[in-house]
Amino acid sequence: MTVPVTIRPISTKADRKRFVDLAWDIYRDDPYWVPPLKSEVHALLDPGQNPWFGHARLQLFLAERGGEVVGRISAHVDELMLDSMPDTGLWGLFEAKDDATAAALIAAAEDWLRGEGMKHAIGPVSLSIWDEPGLLIDGFEEPPMAMMGHHRPAYEGWVEQAGYAKAKDLFTFALDIRIDMIPVIDRLIKAGEKNDKIVVRDVDKSKFDQEAAIILEILNDAWSDNWGFVPLTDAEVAYAGKKLKPIIVDDLCKILEYEGRPVAFMLTIPDINEMIADLDGRLFPFGWAKLLWRLRKPSTRRVRVPLMGVRKEFQSTRLASTFAFLLIEYTRRVCVDKYGINHGEFGWVLEDNQGMMSIANLPGSGINHTYRIYQKTL
């Protein structure tokens, strides 16, 4: 007789450990999975550390069969997201060993969301739209870069069997950054370089808090019309800055000023996954020393552009393209000439964000990962 799966809500520290540790069981034979730092995952789930809980509520669920943990899922409601998506809850952090477990987990998350008054569900989003949104549906045979998710190919079918349909696709673009810009873009860059009103500068890490506030203020303005947008609170800005500071390299992160005012930025980070891949998620007893040493002078094969933004007032003008390509070109030169980095990744990019899609389609670039966010009426 088949042992049935049991789904239960969890709250204890011991259960949260089981929740986090399941990923190591699920992906132990996947050569492309990069174990995250367990301390980071636990911090994500801790209301005492993650300021996201200041405007959101969460329930975690474990699936068990015969005493073995065989799946997990989170269900959550973000009050700030309700402003743009009324009556819509989320689920995420989804992992399952089989289709029956997947169905039971998704059903449990949906029941919890209904109990919270939600009429629609989207997922997976883990936990915020700013963390790891979407399910990987294409690009499995390449390790994910920093702050990107990796999933089992079977999950796509299991989610769709639960009645979910595509809401949005998110893309990342891989590019060979040794390739020069095409003439039309090169002319745009040269025109921008001659414009005395435009200054592109490096982030000053000695003033990191102020610089982070500038970047994230531009980001909140630039992305405010995007699907699923949730503004970052002051507490989240400070929290994000604290997490990002160790992997920020001054001359890989650029702020563009127009007429003396910051109006655009591009954040480029070394692929931290290359630095942590061999730590198996553990900083102790020796992992912390290895990571601190590697962070002293980050040297990775790849870099990623997770965030870029131009203030809304410029987005419908020719200057927007000038700003974007200046930021890209100046960073490209530093990567190739100073650090010997030849490969980059840009994204994620929403499929219907035509401005960013056109910018991401640089010479030598192509989509290397597709992530899908699903939706369902409850």
Rank of each mutant, 00 (worst) to 15 (best):
G241E: 04
P36T: 05
L60H: 12
K38F: 04
A75C: 11
E64H: 06
P124S: 04
W223M: 10
L350H: 02
L326N: 08
M181D: 13
D25E: 15
E64S: 13
G89Y: 03
A222L: 05
T317Q: 13
S128I: 06
A104K: 12
K312G: 08
I373T: 10
Q161L: 14
V20F: 07
R318K: 14
D131E: 11
A238D: 06
C253G: 06
S128K: 04
L283T: 03
R28T: 12
P133A: 04
S126P: 04
F346I: 06
T317R: 13
N273E: 10
F229S: 04
A213Y: 10
R114N: 08
S128M: 07
K194H: 04
K17F: 11
L295D: 07
S74R: 11
W33V: 02
W91F: 15
I276K: 06
I26F: 01
D98V: 02
E132R: 11
D138K: 11
E95I: 08
V20I: 15
I137S: 02
L326M: 15
G366I: 00
Q59P: 03
W227D: 11
G67M: 00
V200G: 06
W227E: 12
D131K: 04
E345Q: 13
T377P: 01
L283R: 01
R28N: 13
A360K: 01
P231Q: 07
S365G: 01
K194N: 12
L93T: 12
L58A: 08
K376N: 05
S316P: 00
E160K: 15
V336P: 01
G192H: 03
L44A: 12
D15Q: 15
A100D: 14
I255G: 07
S74L: 14
G92H: 02
S128A: 13
Q354R: 15
N195L: 09
L188A: 10
V310E: 09
K297W: 08
T172K: 05
L219I: 08
N368L: 09
K190G: 01
R282N: 10
L45F: 13
